[in-house]
């Protein structure tokens, strides 16, 4: 059933974009927006529906940092590593989060709930250093505050909100 729903979803994306020029990246965005990443089955389904070789899809998918090919977990914790954040202690923030979650940069926690990553400038340089969890932005953060932030999200996960 879930697979059918996915096929329908991709069908809709293919219908909206399939005939437009230069739409492959837009279709991959649409898939990732819906599912959090671009699963292999979705890429296969897209290849079938818009008649593009799978290799061509992966060629693009793996070139761009933004696209994920594995599930990112419920709460994606991103540490901005733009210059302003770097100068104001982003490496310390990343270390504190790594310690708190017990993972390294780019890894997911064992229970799959949290995914820690360093990201390119998010453009909130006036608020440096910046951490985002999913779409929530935390500005002017300190390493000692990381435990509290993770705790809030753990509570939300425990409450089944995510």
């Amino acid at each position: 059933m879930a697979e059918e729903a996915a096929a329908v979803h991709i069908g809709r994306i293919a219908k909206q974009w399939g005939k437009k020029r230069g739409s492959l990246i837009m279709m991959l965005h649409a898939i990732q927006d819906q599912r959090g990443y671009v699963p292999r089955d979705a890429a296969l389904e897209l290849a079938r529906q818009v008649d593009v070789p799978l290799a061509r899809i992966y060629e693009v998918l793996t070139f761009y940092n933004y696209f994920k090919t594995s599930s990112p977990g419920k709460a994606v914790v991103s540490v901005c590593t733009g210059t302003a954040c770097h100068l104001k202690g982003a490496p310390d923030i990343l270390a504190a989060l790594g310690e708190e979650l017990g993972v390294a940069d780019g890894e997911a926690s064992e229970d799959g709930n949290f995914h820690l990553q360093s990201v390119r400038c998010v453009g909130c340089c006036g608020l440096a250093p910046v951490v985002t969890v999913n779409a929530t932005v935390y500005g002017k953060v300190k390493p000692a505050e990381m435990r509290g932030i993770i705790g809030q999200w753990q509570d939300r996960i425990d409450a089944g909100e995510l």
Binding site: I25, M26, L28, H29, F63, Y64, N65, Y66, F67, R120
Partner: peptide, 8 residues
């Protein structure tokens, strides 16, 4: 509009 995907 076309979107980038994280490539400087």
């Amino acid at each position: 509009i076309r979107l980038g995907a994280g490539a400087f």
